[in-house]
Nucleic acid binder design. Sequence first.
DNA 1: CTGTTAGCGCATTCAA
DNA 2: TTGAATGCGCTAACAG
Lengths: 338, 338
Amino acid sequence: MGGRVTATMVARHAGVSVATVSLVVNGKHRGRVSPANVAKVRQSIAELGYVVDRVASSLSKGSSDLVILISPDISNPFFAGVIAGIKQVLGKRYQLLVSVTDDGNLPQAQEVRASLEFRPAALLVFAPAETFVDAVRGHAPMVLIDAPGMEHLAPTINIDIEASARALGEHLTSLGHRTFGYLDSRTGSRTFQMRRDALMDQISGSGGHESISEVATSIVSYEAAGEAFTQAWPQWSRDGVTSVICATDIQAYGVIGAARSLGLAIPGDLSVASFDNLSYSAISSPSLTSVELPSVELGRSAASVALALIDGEAVSVSHEVFAGQLHVRESTAALTTS
Amino acid sequence: MGGRVTATMVARHAGVSVATVSLVVNGKHRGRVSPANVAKVRQSIAELGYVVDRVASSLSKGSSDLVILISPDISNPFFAGVIAGIKQVLGKRYQLLVSVTDDGNLPQAQEVRASLEFRPAALLVFAPAETFVDAVRGHAPMVLIDAPGMEHLAPTINIDIEASARALGEHLTSLGHRTFGYLDSRTGSRTFQMRRDALMDQISGSGGHESISEVATSIVSYEAAGEAFTQAWPQWSRDGVTSVICATDIQAYGVIGAARSLGLAIPGDLSVASFDNLSYSAISSPSLTSVELPSVELGRSAASVALALIDGEAVSVSHEVFAGQLHVRESTAALTTS
DNA sequence: CTGTTAGCGCATTCAA
DNA sequence: TTGAATGCGCTAACAG
């Protein structure tokens, strides 16, 4: 306390005015401040240990240097990749504020509005609910991540989930599977819905194949997924389900764990596959067949668009799409018995 | 743009002064504003869609409602637990800003200073380096998490890593293991050092037992750990190592993967154990013997102390300690052959 | 109880 | 090229 160094103190120390100090610290002194004064100011700044007060600066400028990412669930390591990508592109100039929604819910208008109170330079919203966009109304540049179907609302970075889902469907049908159980994510994000829809399209569209027998739902957690599976299995078993597909890897782990408890062999009795391709999926036992989602690229791209928006470039509702990649591993196998 | 509603506009709309509006929005109107005016203000706020500008508010008050967590590595799911715990306690009043350090480095003075620019209500620093504390000097209340040996600098929440490490050591020695390899974390945090030291104490102190033969080091990543193990194994093998202990679960996964590539059976040829007890550790194959670290409790406790500090309570350099819990699983087994 | 006033620290006019 | 003055929107002290 009391230890705060202000621009006024620097100005006095350097024998110049606050305005001069401001110009120097913001690098706007090209031909506006004499080299001698620039040097004096720099010296004083160093001696006094002055740091710009971003709060005051933000108030004066009308917007902060904060880029806020609103994301539904960072317990999924997938987000670590997204965040890493964002940070790479943002660099030192902007601080990333990660605002986590409660309980894996989709970002709502409320969260967006709360974030707006900080006058962020930009807002990155992951898998938003459909209803929230009005809240923003040109208050801050906004980029949507993984929000298929919302491209008309704001620049959006999407995963080409359809192609990936199809690839997964093809893989499983080619192994002889005909009846599937699907474990969805309860957050109800569009992206999850599309994963499921594209899969069902592929499977039922392959001619003569039965469609997914039933859809169980759980929040994205190991335990919840295990419980959901345990509950669904009696019915699924009667329906002849030979393969379970999960919206996320974490849920697949839960299913595998629960299936073991039920005495099922993976992939002998049941094939399991999912979306995310976390690192562990390569080494788990059985290793997990999974669709790799380009998390880092997603983050990088979103941040790039945000920067362009901040700089006033009229990003024409860009709609970038990154493709996923299917990794076939031990958890899926051909149907051996009938 | 142009759409920003200010307190002045609300005041005019409600026919009162800005001061009254301020009192109402801050809930400080108990006996200071007439019920009639409170109602009018509330009404106007709703009609106009007014939101407090936290930037201006922060400048005026001298500190923001931001609680900043500086953490070295959110790609480790362990942190998701810590963050969840913090958010539980912080509630709606304070926003949590997660500031991730680059590349899994320990939080340095630089990160702390940058965070200070936002005038946070409090700072939570995870596994800090020893050199950084001067940067804060009473600018903001600070709580250290998992920082053994730094209790004299600030209120600290620690894991009782010694007891856990001892439990792990006992488990392994009781299985007949006498020679150990240890895979450390390169970040060099005190907590990692203590994990190792306590283990060595236990092992060598058990009388007649050989101590850990050698210490390999890697950053906390699956790949790096695998490489470190592959490099260390020839020597370890000659030394008679029968058990490898890792500073984190993620590294243990790497070791298990690498060991497999070398044709080693786990736990037949080699027992593996570690610290963290991530969810996956229960279902990996072999499932992993691991010390559970109380991540959520850690976060909750740190946030509680932070709130107390914010409220001006003189937290007497509290030094809370949470115990870990050993989960024995398949990756460790008794020595069968000699 | 209520309104008026004076900053918070900085960026940005506008004169000089 | 520089400095003094103004305002960003709000809170807190003060006066009514």
